[in-house]
């Protein structure tokens, strides 16, 4: 069997296609940050996760350290149970604080980890005890309106 120019073209096509796929995976997607073998899992309970989704990022000081693996409702505590996959390279103290934050006013929600001062580190399967739920915009607005109303009541009272 001879090699033909046709083979060359098909080769170029296949290589280009696979190259495009690689670009999508590494540059566009997050495969470069996937390190499944080199990771461990942590749990945390939140009373409200807001709009947090699986695969949301987990950041510490703004650096991506892991991803949300799974979200479910704890049937005993009636709280959201979030399983996180954390990069093995990063260890966090036992009293680390997990916070659900929003990037920008309307952006994606993610989990921010603020390390405490404990000497001992969290191990695979451990639970982060100190958490703060998502800020739900509706709550915020109604609280704001409520306090405004309170304010105006006081203002109303004063001239009397």
């Amino acid at each position: 069997m001879k090699r033909t120019t046709l083979d060359l073209w098909v080769g170029i096509f296949v290589v280009a296609g696979l190259g495009a796929l690689a670009v999508l995976a590494l540059k566009v997607g997050n495969l470069s940050t996937y390190n499944m073998s080199e990771s461990y899992q942590l749990q945390a309970h939140f009373s409200n996760i807001g709009g947090l989704k699986p695969q949301a990022s987990i950041k510490s000081s703004g650096v991506l350290v892991g991803r949300v693996a799974q979200i479910s409702l704890d049937p005993e505590r009636y709280e959201a149970k979030v399983t996180m996959t954390i990069d093995k390279r990063y260890q966090f103290p036992k009293d680390t604080f997990a916070n659900i934050l929003t990037s920008g006013l309307l952006g994606e929600q993610y989990i921010g980890l603020i390390p405490g001062g404990d000497e001992a580190f969290l191990k695979a399967g451990d639970e982060i005890k100190k958490t703060q739920s998502a800020v739900v915009l509706e709550d915020l607005i109604s609280r704001f309106l409520y306090s405004k109303a309170e304010d105006s009541k006081q203002v109303d009272k004063q001239p009397n």
């Binding site: 796929l21 999508l24 995976a25 540059k27 566009v28 997607g29 997050n30 495969l31 470069s32 940050t33 996937y34 695969q55 990022s57 991506l64 994606e108």
Partner: peptide, 19 residues
């Protein structure tokens, strides 16, 4: 532009499903 893209696009969920 690139970092938001990487944060938003998940390999398994988006790219593999698209394929």
């Amino acid at each position: 532009f690139w970092s938001q893209m990487q944060a938003g696009v998940d390999f398994q969920h988006d790219i593999v499903n698209g394929m």
